[in-house]
């Protein structure tokens, strides 16, 4: 059963950095696990936690948020604001009994295709080790 488990990961990627980094990983023909479903955003700071929560409550095994390195935000400081929001989100998940380490926030630039592929591999293997989202078995929230 454990070997059959294929994590489903939702990734919210900033248009200006991590999304381009994912594109570079692809055009560079770097291999990474196909468990990641990518949603492009204009900025990590534009992500309302409601969409992370929706993914988790629907049974996503992990959520990844990719933004620009500190100081590199296309909109000056959206990534810093994203970091505060994610800190609050993780605290709330922890307080309500949900594993906050299923949500990852990472800074990956447009030139870091290799880092993107490596990070996705690390994420998928970490989530695979954690096992399925316990809410998967629930009858819909």
């Amino acid at each position: 059963m454990a070997e059959d488990f294929q994590p489903r990961i939702i990734a919210f990627l900033c248009n200006w950095c991590t999304y381009a980094g994912a594109d570079l990983a692809g055009t560079s023909r770097l291999q990474y696990p196909p468990n990641v479903r990518i949603i492009r955003l204009m900025c990590s700071g534009a992500l309302d936690p409601v969409y992370v929560l929706k993914a988790l409550l629907e049974g996503a095994d992990g959520v990844f948020i990719g933004g620009c390195h500190p100081g590199d935000c296309h909109y000056q400081n959206g990534n810093y604001k994203a970091r505060r929001r994610v800190a609050i989100l993780k605290k709330i998940l922890e307080q309500t009994g949900f594993d906050p380490d299923r949500v990852w926030l990472r800074w990956i630039s447009a030139s870091e295709g290799r880092l993107f592929a490596d990070t996705m591999t690390e994420l998928v293997e970490t989530i695979r080790a954690k096992g399925p989202n316990p809410l998967r078995g629930q009858w819909g929230m």
């Binding site: 936690p49 929560l53 929706k54 629907e58 049974g59 609050i88 819909g140």
Partner: peptide, 28 residues
């Protein structure tokens, strides 16, 4: 789609999503 995925569906949907989101938006 959700019905087929979960086998059963709690309705109204999104009640937990509502409270967890409100916690994110205003608990500070």
């Amino acid at each position: 789609g959700w019905l087929h995925r979960h086998g059963a569906l709690r309705l109204p949907a999104d009640t937990l999503l509502f409270h967890l989101t409100r916690l994110n938006h205003m608990s500070a």
